[in-house]
Design a protein around this nucleic acid. Sequence first.
DNA 1: AAAATTCATCAATCTATATTGATATATTAT
DNA 2: ATAATATATCAATATAGATTGATGAATTTT
Lengths: 93, 93
Amino acid sequence: MKNKKENINLSIDFLKTISERNRFRILYLLRENKRCVGEICRELDLPQNLVSHHLKVLKDFGLISSEQEGVRIFYKTNPKIIKKYLKLVDKIL
Amino acid sequence: MKNKKENINLSIDFLKTISERNRFRILYLLRENKRCVGEICRELDLPQNLVSHHLKVLKDFGLISSEQEGVRIFYKTNPKIIKKYLKLVDKIL
DNA sequence: AAAATTCATCAATCTATATTGATATATTAT
DNA sequence: ATAATATATCAATATAGATTGATGAATTTT
């Protein structure tokens, strides 16, 4: 169990990560099925480099994971991790 | 019950509102006792106009409320409303 | 009524970061 | 080996919004 200040900072970082519109939409899109980058681009009508960038931010925070399948890379979300952070925020506020 | 798109936008607006560091700290500070603006400034070591600005953002979103007492204005948070929005986010993601 | 205190508001500036454009890397197909 | 496809990365720019500085409005005190 971390201390209060660390939990506050962690909560803020989490909230900043998911509050960006396109990242939130990506998480929403991935909540059911895994998708490759190109699919995400098409579904959300966003350029590839932008989607790659947001995927990296989400992955760096541990909210999504990826697996290579041939030339494509599929991303999937882990709802349990998201729930864990939401609970932390709920506990603090 | 609103439609999906509205709920997504509402969630994003909520997350943006609380993810700003100083607003998060204000909410954290107010979660127990009400405080006047000056107290918040002193506790968080922030200038008065900045605190007023963030209080307005939080109040406009309905996350806090205020009551005048003489020359001072006390703000308090409503944890139930925050919980309601967190639940919405949890449902969507 | 004047001064002091508390808070709000507005315009200007600063800052963080989202977006874009160009390019690199890796895998598959021909 | 070359071309084609899919994704990542990096530098440059754009933009949203946080912060600051100055001022105004309201209430209380003297």
